[in-house]
Nucleic acid binder design. Sequence first.
DNA 1: TTCTAATCGGAGTCGCCAGTCCGATTGTAG
DNA 2: CTACAATCGGACTGGCGACTCCGATTAGAA
Lengths: 197, 197
Amino acid sequence: MTAQQAGQDSPRPLRADARRNRARLLEVAEAVFTARGTGVSTEEIAREAGVGVGTLFRHFPTKEALLEAVLLRRLERLAEAAEQLAATKAPGDAFFTFFALVVDQSPAKNVFADALSAAGVDVRQTTSEIGRTLHQAMAALLTEAQRANAVRADLGVPELTALLVGTCRMVEHLGSDSDARERTFAVIADGLRASGS
Amino acid sequence: MTAQQAGQDSPRPLRADARRNRARLLEVAEAVFTARGTGVSTEEIAREAGVGVGTLFRHFPTKEALLEAVLLRRLERLAEAAEQLAATKAPGDAFFTFFALVVDQSPAKNVFADALSAAGVDVRQTTSEIGRTLHQAMAALLTEAQRANAVRADLGVPELTALLVGTCRMVEHLGSDSDARERTFAVIADGLRASGS
DNA sequence: TTCTAATCGGAGTCGCCAGTCCGATTGTAG
DNA sequence: CTACAATCGGACTGGCGACTCCGATTAGAA
């Protein structure tokens, strides 16, 4: 931001090993933070990735930046999946498949979103770029499903988001008991279909 | 635990000021942790309560112990409320009132439960005493509501707990938009009633 | 009021962790 | 292969926060 073009990224492509390390760090960070919480130290992440802390901080100037990067990757993937589903499946099916997908992938996202908002980062601000894409993709899925009468009409994207967040927590809470998980999920699904009539 | 009876608490009642301070600390801790997260330092809690850190640590040997104490108070209150409701209202009404009560009180509980489990404390272990009471009270509310056909039959207490946890998150997520909150809550409520037929 | 044990308060200790710095290493252009 | 700039690694720093310790204070019994 200081004296470079503010628009796009690296004027010079990263050296091969640098790119490798960066990718490795993201990978490891995602895995470790997801598994053991965002409290894990940067040193630990670096060690696990087989690099020094210096390397970590060269790529991500802040622990927070690392978390952000991981979260963005997650959102990006979700947006992709949403578009894919919207394009290939029937409205209702696409919607519920997406819902299930988000919930399955979620134990992770929660952790990151929490950590960031706890650190005072406005997630909505930071993730705006991809956030918008995801938002639109979700809106498309939702309205199509509603038009097909597969989902009640009195919901918008904010409500859907909240339901997703909450459902993620439920799943997280139930842990490995997949029977209970299914029953719980059924409550939500039935609620989403209920016409309110 | 070193040389005293392991069973019950204080053989000697606390001095008046000590009792006062202890109560104050719990009060303040609950408020502050709820409002600003469990990351708030013990020193801050102590200052806010108008005592020194020494006092805080005399009453609660560990920050974690303080969190635990606060959480227990919360659970205790919930158990009370559940019993009260079961005794005075019609089954379905009692159940849904309880549900709403938990959700309203919740922004708090989440925070504590999270912090403790993040710290490696098995909440189910620690809160067993009151946890059992609460568990029973919830079971009673649930089965009565089911018998009265106000709630679908394929749910048990674990599922109910998960739904509560998740719904708390939804509410938390939506923040102050009470319209969206109501719509979201309606999804859950309809889902709970849906017979699955 | 007097005396003593219980309690208080907060300066100080200790360990942990994010983030820095620079000599050693290594990719790569020529 | 050589040279040099990009990159690496990890010892080191600074600050923060949980917890300790002990002299000062105070509740409450006699």
